[in-house]
Lab assay of single mutants.
Amino acid sequence: SASLEDVKTAVLGLLVILQTKLYTLPASHATRVYEMLVSHIQLHYKHSYTLPIASSIRLQAFDFLLLLRADSLHRLGLPNKDGVVRFSPYCVCDYMEPERGSEKKTSGPLSPPTGPPGPAPAGPAVRLGSVPYSLLFRVLLQCLKQESDWKVLKLVLGRLPESLRYKVLIFTSPCSVDQLCSALCSMLSGPKTLERLRGAPEGF
């Protein structure tokens, strides 16, 4: 439990870093931090981490990651405290083949985003970082199938509809809506759902 406290501190630090690096160059920093966060949550489900502190780590990670939004130009952003989304000039939600690297070039400044813009690109060529939603999407499927803490599952179920409104997140990387529907149906009809959940409301 003591070591998990250190892990929790590290994860919180990564969330803060991602919130900053999403809007700064090099964009590969945001890509790497995002991948680290998603990989860490995957390990929770792989090794069945069920301690309360592990659940709190997942809760905080999902609470942040499910706020990711994308505009029509595929640029990622996060809402501010007033709910207004600021889109990044440097990070996009497109999935890119590994051989192309985590970044790609664009020939010049991008068109203005639909929300308040981030800082304008400084040079004639900007390297865009790929932060594909499919990585998070796979972890969300694991959550629906394996999550043991009701608070975490409730958060994910509550945030998913709003995330799905931003269709560009889903359609720019390999996210299977069929698998999502299947996971939701299995969660509702499967007898093991109630068996594994802690803290579920009576009558769920």
Rank of each mutant, 00 (worst) to 15 (best):
A2R: 10
E5S: 10
E5A: 10
D6W: 01
V7C: 06
V7Y: 02
T9F: 06
A10L: 00
A10W: 00
L12N: 15
L12C: 15
L14Y: 01
L15H: 07
V16A: 15
V16P: 15
V16K: 15
Q19S: 09
T20Y: 07
T20G: 08
L22I: 09
Y23E: 04
P26E: 05
P26M: 02
S28P: 05
S28R: 09
S28K: 11
A30L: 03
A30C: 07
A30K: 01
R32M: 06
R32W: 01
V33E: 00
V38E: 01
V38G: 04
H40C: 01
H40D: 00
I41F: 02
I41K: 00
I41R: 01
I41Y: 00
I41M: 11
Q42V: 09
H44A: 01
H47S: 11
Y49D: 02
T50R: 11
T50P: 04
T50Q: 11
P52R: 05
P52W: 02
I53R: 01
I53C: 07
A54M: 03
I57M: 06
R58T: 00
R58V: 01
L67G: 14
L67W: 09
R69Q: 08
R69L: 01
L73W: 13
H74G: 09
R75D: 02
P79R: 08
D82C: 08
D82Y: 11
D82H: 10
V84Q: 13
F87D: 03
S88A: 05
V92I: 10
D94F: 02
D94W: 03
Y95G: 08
E97G: 13
E97W: 08
S102E: 14
S102Q: 13
K105E: 15
S107K: 12
S107N: 13
G108S: 14
P109H: 13
P112F: 09
P112H: 15
P112V: 13
P113F: 15
G115V: 14
P116K: 14
G118L: 14
R127G: 14
G129P: 05
S130F: 10
P132G: 05
S134N: 10
L135V: 11
L135R: 14
L136W: 07
L136S: 07
L136T: 09
R138G: 15
V139W: 01
L140F: 06
L140P: 00
Q146T: 09
E147W: 00
W150Q: 02
K151H: 15
V152C: 05
V152I: 10
K154V: 04
K154N: 09
L157I: 04
L157A: 02
R159P: 00
R159Q: 06
S163C: 15
R165Q: 13
R165L: 06
K167D: 03
K167N: 05
L169N: 05
T172N: 08
T172G: 08
S173H: 04
C175Y: 04
C175N: 06
C175A: 04
C175S: 05
S176K: 12
V177R: 01
V177G: 02
D178L: 03
Q179E: 14
Q179N: 11
A183M: 06
L184Y: 00
L184P: 01
L184E: 00
C185V: 07
S186N: 13
S186R: 08
M187C: 05
S189F: 09
P191F: 09
P191V: 11
L194S: 07
E195D: 15
E195M: 07
R196Q: 08
R196P: 03
L197E: 03
L197Q: 03
R198M: 08
G199E: 10
E202H: 12
G203E: 09
F204D: 04
